[in-house]
Nucleic acid binder design. Structure first.
Lengths: 343, 343
DNA sequence: ATGAAAGCGCTAACAG
DNA sequence: CTGTTAGCGCTTTCAT
């Protein structure tokens, strides 16, 4: 690897002159600057950021710590961050935790060792104590999930309201046996979504046992399939289903379409998230659309600004983006037998 | 940030003793080691990789340079790499090029400045000369696309054979007006897939004008929609369609389902890739399944090994994974009017 | 307008 | 068993 010293020797000048020329210092003659730049380019010189960091320069790397990039939720976020950051000269490090706090900790150790400029994290349910300590030393931002011990900078969506609205939509259609299938309540998102579900039920004055819930520890496609199978068994199966996780939604859709369940005839369904394919599933999936793109952009811009301004303006910051119900064909009043001419 | 010097001062010993204790050097007494580790942990010491790199240590970062992480093709790859690399203590840098050679170049500059340990790249159609130079200085590996000037380490899928097989399937069903819709031929993948399409036609002895092709410069969902609209217009519209890009497939499926085109009645379709949702699209999408997971794992393992063994065993290496046709319901003999009792 | 030298944090060679 | 010293590549005083 070529260094400033190599260039200096080649031109018979000192390293400091080379350094100054490359940083376009005012007191270097134009001619020298030209010769230096020429040589640098010819020799394929690329400045060593490690060395610069030792002199106090900060890293240009921001890390994104998420459960799984295959979840399109997260890949959209990653893309949006990457795009916004590239424009500002930042690079994106990708760390997948698989929702395992130990993996999360290992990643944070590495990120800290690499002295990344900042971290955007979707924390696991209960981060390790050391993870919390490590994050204290790094400018960071929580995304979607919010853990109290990880500071008060947070970007997320209105989980409670999104599920309340989705459930209310089913209630308005006359459903009285509604099931909710979502992620674990250990996660702040899971808890909020479940709360939203219950809010809608109680607002409608429905009895507590109107709502049946299946809360997966694993928010996986496979679990979604199993859970919906379980839900549909038995005599008083629900007539409607609201979902609280993208992965679970994918599983449910696969299972329902495989079992040939009539939607919305036998069962009304409201999905979570709006993936490619949701629109062409069965009668079109009515689903909770999330403004992840906007959220991610906001998040990127906030962090960029935070990193560029020296002062520790680490005041609490919270951004809650609203979801929106995307109405398609997968919901209808219960007992499809009676096509019901109600509005 | 805590340094070894801080620890040394606190314990009244020298920095080298601290360094050795932390690296579990044999000549340090167990007691000192213990005290050092204790202090390090208490003080929240995290080694500075930048400093280590200046002493010759190599980075533990591998970069993945791809067009767009939202393409599930690439997010699957990213996940697989990440998983395999985390196990070996490597971190994954994510660089999106948006298929823009200038963005690609900027990323490679940064990666080089950061002295990343290695690069896995899906190159743009014609990488910039400087990009080529930069890559020469970095251990790297091409993925899927293969550009001759970027070295001879490559992992990919058998694009030619995959499309040949898919097309042959349609030919076998009796189609004689088959369209191919794929990415630009400037990309090696695009060219190979198109070649596969033509191979199948000529093997079947079909006239050249049997195949109609639409080659998108932009492999986007939107372009897929437009293109299929164009294809279906006019009197001698094709009776079958083979696709050569995931994004285009997504667009085509949306458009066909929106327009209510009967598949396979009016049109037989073979998709590219196997995304969630392809199985529940219409009659189930017959599609070209790709072993991306295996490919990515192979790729990760190869690079890890390459990075761990000092010697420049940069011998040419090529790995071609075969695709496989996933048969579902979207293809049938032409002229659906005659349900045709053939096997 | 340019050089010389110091030092960032760490490790390794060289003394004890 | 432990300390001293040098140097990785770069920027930044402090001297010319």
């Amino acid at each position: 690897m070529i260094t400033t010293k190599d260039i200096a020797e080649r031109l018979g000048i000192s390293v400091s002159t080379v350094g100054r020329a490359l940083s376009d210092d005012a007191r270097i003659s134009e001619e020298t600057k030209f010769r230096v730049r020429q040589a640098a380019s010819e020799m394929g010189y690329v400045g060593n950021r490690a060395a610069r960091m030792m002199r106090g320069a900060s890293s240009n790397v921001v890390a994104l710590v998420i459960p799984d990039i295959r979840n399109s939720f997260y890949s959209t976020i990653a893309h949006e961050l990457s795009k916004n950051m590239e424009a500002e000269g930042f690079q994106l490090m990708l760390s997948e935790t698989d929702d395992d706090r130990m993996v999360e900790l290992r990643h944070l150790r590495e990120l800290s060792a690499n002295r990344v400029a900042g971290v955007i994290i979707v924390p696991t349910a209960r981060p390790h104590g050391d993870s919390i300590k490590l994050l204290r030393g790094l400018p960071h931002l929580q995304l979607l999930r919010r853990h109290p011990s990880l500071g008060s900078q947070w970007f997320g969506v209105d989980d409670h309201e999104s599920l309340r609205e989705a459930t209310a939509h089913l209630v308005a259609q006359g459903h009285t046996r509604i099931a909710y299938l979502g992620g674990p309540t250990e996660l702040p998102t899971g808890a909020e979504r479940l709360r939203g579900f219950h809010s809608a039920l109680s607002e409608a004055g429905l009895p507590d046992d109107a709502g049946r819930t299946e809360l997966g520890p694993p928010s996986s496609v496979e679990y979604g399939r199993e859970a919906v199978r379980r839900l549909l068994e038995g005599p008083d199966a629900p007539t409607a289903l609201v979902l609280g996780s993208i992965q679970l939604t994918l599983g449910v859709l696969e299972e329902l379409s495989e079992q040939g369940v009539q939607v919305p005839g036998e069962l009304s369904v409201v999905g979570f998230g709006d993936e490619p394919g949701f629109s062409w599933w069965g009668p079109g999936l009515t689903t909770i659309g999330l403004p992840i793109q906007e959220m991610a952009t906001g998040c990127a811009l906030w962090l960029m600004r935070r990193l560029k301004t020296k002062p520790e303006n680490d005041g609490p910051y919270t951004s809650v983006s609203p979801g929106s119900l995307v109405l398609r064909g997968s919901t209808a009043p219960p007992d499809g037998k009676a096509p019901s001419s109600s509005a």
